[in-house]
Simulated scan of single mutants.
Amino acid sequence: MKVTVLSGGVGGARFTRGLLAHLAESAPGSQITVIANTGDDMWLHGVRVCPDLDTLMYTLGGAVHEQQGWGRREESSRVSQDLAAYGVGWDWFTLGDLDLATHLARTQWLREGLSLTETTARLCERWRLADQGVRLLPMSDQPVETHVRVDDGLIHFEEWWVRHRAALPAREFVQVGLAQAEPAPGVLEAIGEADAVLLPPSNPVVSVGTILAVPGVRDALTTTPAPVVGISPIIGGAAVRGMAAECLATIGVAASAEAVARHYGRRATGGVLDGWLVDTADAEAAEKLAADGWRTAVTDTLMRDVPHTARIAATLLNLV
């Protein structure tokens, strides 16, 4: 089975880990392509940082800090502490020592002329993702950075997200470089040749939404013969983690399972989805969507651990 996942960071990584566990039992030999959001990428301390790519790589490679959901397990921060003593960097965005090694390797290869796709493949070799049947792709090799327009001007998304915890009113999200971006090699093929395309419970605005905004990606989703199904990132009117509700408010979408589904839209009416999985708290939303022709399902979608997440993945694939 060929499965393609369009993913942000923590939520998408944890879902994909559960998907792997499910397919290992139900469909051994399956191939999974994960297309990652790179809109959160940035330069910091002279190195290229790719938060969502790294969270996916560490999680699927078994090295993630489980309590945080991002970064490396058994991390230290001596380099960042010493940089702070020089007055360099952001005290609200700390690069761990082990994590810094990843960024240094990526930056060296990028400066040697490798593309982000090639660099990502090299990094993933260490974590043996291919042994699990996983290929991790950036959405684009061209730099795309999400910025947020606040009252005082534009700031990088990570500053709005991490430093201000989305407390500053966001007027709009601006994807710098998006107009010049192209899908990375293999992205369109992974969508067009898949048996199923899955949208995990990643942020629908600044994660999955950014991937969909890369020229050509949305068209690929609307034309692929594969069913396209997704999981609501909203449970009972609230995001499980992160500030998805604040992001949705910025674009005028309510923080509800039904509203997010309608934001993505049904393929039969010009959107990108064929099916939508919601939490038991939102069963009424599933009924309303089903009445409008959507294929829906309801289950406990809170990803507590890998076995439970594997069951969530199984339910989502049943929609296929």
Rank of each mutant, 00 (worst) to 15 (best):
N318L: 11
A259K: 13
R106G: 01
S202N: 11
A226Y: 13
D274Q: 04
W70R: 15
D52N: 13
G186L: 08
V10P: 10
E258C: 07
Y264Q: 04
V134T: 04
G89H: 03
L302D: 02
G230I: 13
I312Y: 12
R135D: 00
L123R: 15
I32V: 15
V144R: 01
P201D: 06
A261V: 03
A259W: 08
G252W: 04
Q142C: 12
G133H: 09
R48T: 00
L289W: 10
P215G: 04
L319Q: 04
L95V: 06
L178Y: 00
P51N: 15
L316V: 14
L154Q: 12
E66I: 05
H164Q: 08
A310D: 02
C247R: 15
G12A: 08
G11W: 00
A84D: 12
P183T: 11
G69V: 11
R48E: 08
I211A: 05
V187R: 02
E66F: 01
T38P: 07
L212I: 00
T55N: 14
Q68C: 10
E25W: 02
T4K: 09
V253Q: 09
A21P: 13
W109F: 13
A63C: 03
R14S: 04
W160V: 08
M57F: 00
A238D: 15
D52V: 11
E258W: 01
R48L: 03
P225C: 07
L221W: 05
P225R: 05
V278Y: 02
T38Y: 04
L319M: 14
A105E: 10
L60S: 12
T59E: 08
F157K: 15
T301R: 10
E182V: 05
D54L: 04
V217H: 10
L212R: 12
V208D: 07
A121H: 04
H308V: 07
A101N: 04
H22M: 09
G177W: 02
V148P: 03
S76L: 11
A101K: 12
R122I: 05
G96K: 12
W161T: 09
M243Q: 15
R78D: 03
S7D: 04
L198G: 01
S256Y: 01
W276Y: 06
Q175T: 06
H45V: 02
A286W: 01
T299Q: 05
V228M: 07
A21N: 06
V260S: 09
F93T: 07
T55L: 08
V298G: 04
L98A: 13
I211T: 07
R135Y: 06
M1L: 13
D152C: 06
D131P: 02
A257P: 05
L116A: 01
I312M: 12
G271T: 14
